[in-house]
Simulated assay, not measured.
Amino acid sequence: MKKTILIIDDSEPIRFLLETFLSRKYKVVSATDGYSAMLWLAKGNKPDMIVTDIQMPNIDGWELIDHLNSNELYNDVPVIVLSGVEAPRESAAYKIVDFIRKPFDPVNLMSTIDKNMQLSARVLTA
């Protein structure tokens, strides 16, 4: 069974690229902003990983990550930030596993996702 990645980005071309590229290996669900992602999560869905942008309408990436970190159901889900903004100095407080700047190399992103999926699988089975 394929692991699930939740992609959150308000850019349709970025979502399309990520869905197309990542769906070769993973089940991909996408949302246009943090609010839509939280609605999907509220239905009882739990992804194996989240890749999110920061600058989005309604609920931005930092607010979403705060919500995930404060919720016992989701605080163990690895989060990769994929954004055009610089990583703030306090980003470590948000419990993200990686911060990748746009424009990004899809091969590098896939490698980062694969590595973190393996790490999270080891932690869950330990």
Rank of each mutant, 00 (worst) to 15 (best):
I80M: 14
L64T: 06
R122A: 06
L39R: 15
D105P: 01
K102G: 07
S91I: 12
Y26L: 01
P106C: 00
T32L: 09
D114Q: 13
L109P: 02
S83E: 01
V81W: 09
V123M: 09
K27N: 13
G44E: 14
K95V: 05
K43A: 15
G84T: 06
L17G: 06
T32M: 12
K27T: 15
I50C: 03
Q55W: 03
N108A: 13
N75A: 05
Q118I: 08
V28Y: 02
Q55H: 10
V107N: 09
G84Q: 07
L18T: 07
F104Q: 07
I7H: 02
K43P: 05
L39I: 15
L18D: 12
S30E: 00
P103Q: 11
I54L: 15
L41E: 12
K43Y: 06
S11L: 09
K25P: 03
V51W: 08
Q118D: 12
T4G: 03
L39W: 00
I100K: 13
P13I: 05
L73T: 15
K2D: 05
K46V: 14
I54M: 13
L41N: 10
E19A: 02
L39H: 10
V85C: 03
D105H: 04
N45C: 09
D60W: 01
Q118M: 12
D60S: 04
K3I: 02
K3G: 11
D33G: 05
M49E: 12
N116D: 04
M117Q: 05
R89S: 12
L22C: 09
T125Q: 14
W40V: 12
M49N: 10
L18F: 11
L18A: 11
A93M: 11
I50R: 05
D76N: 15
A126G: 09
S120N: 10
P106G: 02
I7Q: 02
I14N: 09
P106R: 00
N71R: 11
N75P: 06
V28M: 04
A31E: 02
S36K: 12
I7G: 02
V81T: 04
Q55K: 14
G34R: 00
L124E: 09
S30M: 01
L68S: 09
N58A: 12
A37E: 14
I65V: 15
M56F: 00
V79T: 14
P103T: 07
K115M: 07
A87C: 13
G61T: 05
S111W: 03
R15D: 01
V97N: 03
I65Q: 10
G34W: 00
N69R: 11
R24N: 10
L73P: 01
M49Y: 11
Y35R: 07
N69Y: 05
V97S: 05
S83V: 01
G44F: 10
P106Q: 00
S11F: 03
T112H: 02
Q55A: 11
L39M: 13
I113W: 02
K43T: 15
E86M: 12
D9R: 04
S83Y: 01
W62F: 13
L73F: 08
